[in-house]
Design a binder for these strands. Structure first.
Lengths: 197, 197
DNA sequence: ACACACAATTGAGCACTGTTCAATAATTAT
DNA sequence: ATAATTATTGAACAGTGCTCAATTGTGTGT
């Protein structure tokens, strides 16, 4: 069968993850097929399992890549000088989800088969994103104590997530909401103002 | 095979939906099997398809029942005299989700196979819940205009949903949050206070 | 140069899924 | 009693995730 050294193990990983992301973006998690990913990459299903261990392993790798890209997306937007950094963060949250809704949804809809929590290395990627948010909230509340800042940052992340979720899931369409980003930002601003007082 | 008139069509529906809900609560949507529901009820898979038309039809019926129960749950709590009605609503949102997390999750994780929106009769059940929330927000803001009330009600629903989502999905565990209901209620109170001012 | 050990790759096979539909059985109408 | 109708069945189909014996490519030791 003869392609033992066509690709290194990490090249293989990239191949599968890239093709997997493409397929996920097209079909969503429900229609996602590891077999089809393997076929399209040109390797057998056996090789995919050799590399990722399981279906969960593949999806986890794909989701980690999506999270990393999300982080890059936010950092890039924050790097622009000036501007309202909180608004940039909120907008970046929505923008990324809107650009690849199915991949974004898969971030949340995928669960480990045994119900176990995600592995450490994956949680670290999530913690990195949380850190970005916390840093901006801290900057907006110079005189607040760290634990309060963290708590508020988590709550505001949940607030923005809820709005983004209803937006991507079309729940807001159903309820007649047309400006979810504005609404999310308004809630965030109110909470920060209240924390300042 | 001989049970043509054991159950009427609507009795059959109830049978399948009840057993389906039981199974959904145990296995979650990913492990849910229409075949197994049929087997447990004692009818063939063909009969299930005759009644619901498709897998989506069955899950939709199950989810509609879950939504109705959620509404009953909230109404029952609100019916108690006195008390903080906003806090009751927020608490009821979390409480129901925590009691049957897998059924609650299925409410959001199920999507029509063709990506189409949910049928009218299903949307009506959702609208009913939204109406309950809007009524309470309106009561909290006596002098506000109706369109503003509706807009705020949608936004606060999203806010609470985001907190509840992170709670049920264990994201908050991962981030160290231990009092998500308090956080959600605080955000809601701030927003209402800001709307009053 | 050759044989041997090792590691990567394969794909048929298993138990499961949702879905269809001809055949069959039970009921109702004539 | 016979015919028409309707409910019910389950085998068949194409697909899924997953396993593992067999095969093939590579590297090493002599």
């Amino acid at each position: 069968m003869g392609r033992r050294s066509d690709h290194t193990r990490s090249e293989l990983k990239t191949l599968f993850v890239d093709e997997g992301r493409r397929q996920l973006a097209r079909t969503g998690l429900a229609g996602f097929s590891a077999r089809d990913v393997a076929k399209r990459v040109g390797y057998s299903i056996g090789t995919l399992y050799n590399v990722f261990g399981s279906y969960d392993g593949l999806v986890l790798a794909i989701n980690a890549r999506t999270l990393a890209l999300w982080g890059d997306h936010l950092r890039q937007r924050l790097a622009a000088p000036g501007g309202d950094r909180i608004a940039t963060l909120v907008d970046g949250y929505f923008d990324f989800a809107a650009r690849e809704p199915r991949a974004w949804i898969a971030l949340y809809e995928h669960h480990m088969a045994d119900g176990a929590p995600a592995p450490e290395w994956y949680q670290a990627v999530v913690a990195d994103l949380m850190g970005m948010v916390a840093a901006e909230i801290a900057a907006a509340l110079p005189s607040a104590e760290p634990s309060g800042v963290l708590s508020l940052a988590r709550s505001l992340l949940a607030t923005v997530h809820g709005h983004c979720f209803f937006s991507v899931y079309r729940t807001f369409d159903m309820l007649g909401e047309t400006a979810p980003i504005d609404a999310a930002l308004a809630r965030v601003r109110e909470a920060i103002a209240a924390a300042r007082a």
